[in-house]
Amino acid sequence: MTDHADGDMTDHTDSDMTDHTDAFVAYRNLLFTVAYELLGSAADAEDVLQDTWLRWVRVDLDQVRDHRNYLVRIATRLSLNRLRTLARRKENYVGPWLPEPLLTSPDVAEDAVLAESLSMAMMLVLETLSPTERAVFVLREAFAVGYDEIAEAVGKSEANVRQIAHRARRHVDARRPRETVSAADTRVALDSFRRALETGDLQGLLDVLAPDVVALADGGGVVQAALNPIVGADRVARFLIRGTSRVTDPVTVASIVINGNPALMMRLNGDLDGIMTAAMAGGRITGLYYVRNPSKLSRATAPTPLSRL
């Protein structure tokens, strides 16, 4: 029995509806994770989930061999369609665009493959791929989907998908972080960074920042943020010190886990100011990513369940 691209649409009994619901609920976290990795936006991923359900509920399950693959296929196609809308939105975005940070539970951090694919640094690398390349790479590398299923999802031949996967992997390998850094080492560096930032210790910041560190801040034109990347340890450190010295109350920084990786929650004057994540190499911070846009902080205070299964 073969799955078809759009499925066989039919009316359902109450029993059929229960089967549809059970299958969708079983894979909901996986579908959200796929959509989020393709889009970098939790809000858009939720929209994809809603549309996936509306299509799934009309499918004749007797014609579906594998519920997981079929649902992933629907979510992928809907995500690819939405990526085009996101691309237009990003063209008009004020300042750097960063993915929406998600507070995650410890089990996400324990999944090394998932944590790496969700890291802010990797998500930014994925932004440099074409939509099809991104879908092929994510489905293959993060979710171990077979080439035949990926071909169905992206509307390409299996041979073409294999070529796209090879090209995307080469592209990502050339741009991904230069070394694998443990969560423990990242946490140590961020703790040093946090102490220096809270006390206004310029030298402390310089000690933990790589000479060629790059800082990106996403304010979305809603709140103040640097409109261009800040490059170099001295410039980044002085920018951070200036920013925190302007507030009347102490800066408070809490260690949290964002997208499966160590991160910092920044509070200024007692209010949530933003989420900061980092890329590491050689024991120092090579990239700082600070999301301040309020519309992107709604998922930073309660864990979002994510899954590769």
Rank of each mutant, 00 (worst) to 15 (best):
V136N: 01
E179H: 09
L124D: 02
H166D: 10
A168D: 11
P131F: 02
V181P: 04
R176N: 03
L190P: 05
F137S: 02
R169D: 11
N160R: 14
A144F: 11
R175T: 04
L190V: 12
R178H: 13
A135C: 05
L139I: 10
V181W: 01
V113I: 09
T132C: 09
A174K: 13
T186F: 02
L126K: 15
R178S: 15
A144C: 10
A115Y: 05
A189M: 10
P131Y: 06
L139T: 08
E141R: 14
V181S: 10
T180N: 12
D111A: 02
R175F: 06
L118V: 02
H171M: 13
D191L: 12
A168F: 05
E152G: 02
L139D: 05
S117I: 01
E127H: 11
V181F: 06
E127M: 10
R176F: 04
K156N: 12
V161I: 12
A183I: 10
S130G: 15
L124C: 01
S117P: 00
A153I: 04
V154Q: 07
F137V: 03
R176M: 04
R140W: 02
L129C: 10
A151L: 04
S119L: 00
S119Q: 00
A184Q: 13
M120L: 01
A183R: 11
L124W: 00
H166G: 03
E133G: 15
R134F: 04
I164H: 04
L126C: 06
N160G: 03
S117F: 03
E149C: 00
A183P: 03
T132Y: 11
D173R: 14
M122H: 02
A184V: 13
V172A: 07
A112G: 04
G155N: 08
G146T: 15
A174G: 12
E116Q: 13
S182P: 08
R140Q: 12
S157P: 00
E158R: 15
A151H: 03
A135L: 08
V138S: 03
H171L: 14
K156S: 12
I150L: 08
S182Q: 09
R187S: 15
V161N: 08
S119F: 00
K156E: 15
S182D: 09
A168T: 09
I164C: 08
D148N: 09
F137W: 10
L124H: 01
F143W: 02
F143T: 07
K156M: 14
L139A: 09
V113E: 07
A112E: 13
